[in-house]
Amino acid sequence: MATVLSVSGSPSASSRTGLLLPHLDRRLTAQGHRAAPLGVRAVPAEALLGADVRRPDIVRVAELFARADGVVVGTPVHKASYSGVLEALLDLLPQDALAGKTVLPLATGGTTAHVLAIDYALRAVLNSMGAAHVVQGRFTLDREITVHDDGALTLASHADEALARAVDRFRPRSGRSPRCRRRVEPSGAGAVVSSVTGLHP
């Protein structure tokens, strides 16, 4: 059984990103993995902005990353970039925080104009932190996610199927060696556009 750290990089408690990740966590659990959710918004702002890596809050987060076999990173996209709170957290982690780990990047946004943010912004950061394998990311449009009054979430069928395929391709291995060589799936505009739910190049 692998431990998967599920990181929501949204600053909002009611964001689509924050609701989408538990939906995927249930899929991971059904596959026999152990999902460990982490909402960046739960980390005190003074810890994120203070840039003190010795603060207990930051040390605890770093330990969560260290214990994980794989990491799912979800973020809303605004102005073609991932969220500021996610960036603040990643900046405080050790440079090798993702060494030997399989990582699945996910993003949500209001327009396909932001689709390349996964490949040209978030993926680059994950690679720089030593990820052994970055699975091709998925971008889900806000309009494909319906949030009901009770907080339940429904996805458009094609979006749900696309995310299911991404989770199936995400195969963290328990006990992965931190010295594993990195393997990054081919990317580029064509690969990313084809990963947008409901779009085909």
Rank of each mutant, 00 (worst) to 15 (best):
D160M: 06
L199G: 02
P186S: 09
R143H: 14
G70P: 00
S6I: 13
A159D: 04
A162G: 08
S10A: 12
G70C: 03
R176W: 11
T111P: 01
G175M: 03
L19N: 12
V77L: 15
V115I: 12
G100Q: 12
L89Q: 03
A117Q: 06
A191T: 07
R27A: 06
D25H: 08
A42C: 07
A2V: 12
G188E: 02
D96F: 09
G188M: 03
A117N: 06
L98A: 09
V40W: 00
A99S: 13
M129P: 00
D119L: 09
V184A: 13
L116E: 04
I118D: 00
L98F: 05
A166V: 11
T112S: 12
R165F: 07
K79G: 04
M129A: 06
A42M: 08
A159V: 01
S187V: 08
A35W: 02
A113N: 13
P56L: 07
L98N: 09
P76E: 06
T75Y: 05
R55Y: 01
L199P: 06
T197H: 09
S12F: 09
A191V: 09
D91K: 14
G9H: 09
V72I: 15
V77D: 00
L106C: 08
R123P: 03
H200Q: 13
E46D: 15
H114D: 10
A80V: 10
T140P: 02
R41A: 14
A124P: 01
A51Q: 15
L64Y: 06
G190I: 12
E161G: 06
N127K: 14
L122E: 04
V59C: 08
L92N: 04
M129L: 15
A159K: 03
L48Y: 11
T154F: 01
R41E: 07
S128I: 10
R179C: 05
R55W: 05
S83K: 12
A107W: 01
G198P: 03
L21G: 10
